[in-house]
Computed example of a mutant assay.
Amino acid sequence: MATSEQTKQTTGMYVYGIVPADVEVADDATGVADGTVEVITHGDIAALVSGLSVDRALGAPGDLRAHADLL
Rank of each mutant, 00 (worst) to 15 (best):
Y14F: 14
Y14R: 06
V15L: 15
V15W: 12
Y16S: 08
Y16G: 13
G17K: 09
V19D: 09
P20Q: 10
P20G: 14
P20C: 06
A21H: 05
D22N: 15
V23T: 14
V23D: 02
E24A: 07
D27K: 12
D28K: 05
T30Y: 05
G31Q: 03
V32Y: 01
V32N: 08
E38L: 14
V39N: 03
V39F: 00
I40M: 14
I40S: 13
T41D: 06
H42Y: 12
G43D: 08
D44L: 12
I45T: 15
I45Y: 13
I45F: 13
I45N: 13
I45A: 14
A47I: 10
L48K: 10
G51Y: 09
L52Q: 14
L52N: 14
V54S: 08
D55S: 11
R56E: 14
R56T: 08
A57L: 10
A57V: 14
G59W: 02
G59S: 00
G59A: 01
G59I: 02
G59P: 00
A60R: 10
A60F: 06
P61D: 15
D63V: 12
D63G: 12
D63K: 06
L64A: 14
L64I: 14
A66Y: 01
A66L: 04
A68G: 04
A68H: 08
D69K: 07
D69G: 07
D69L: 09
L70K: 05
L70N: 06
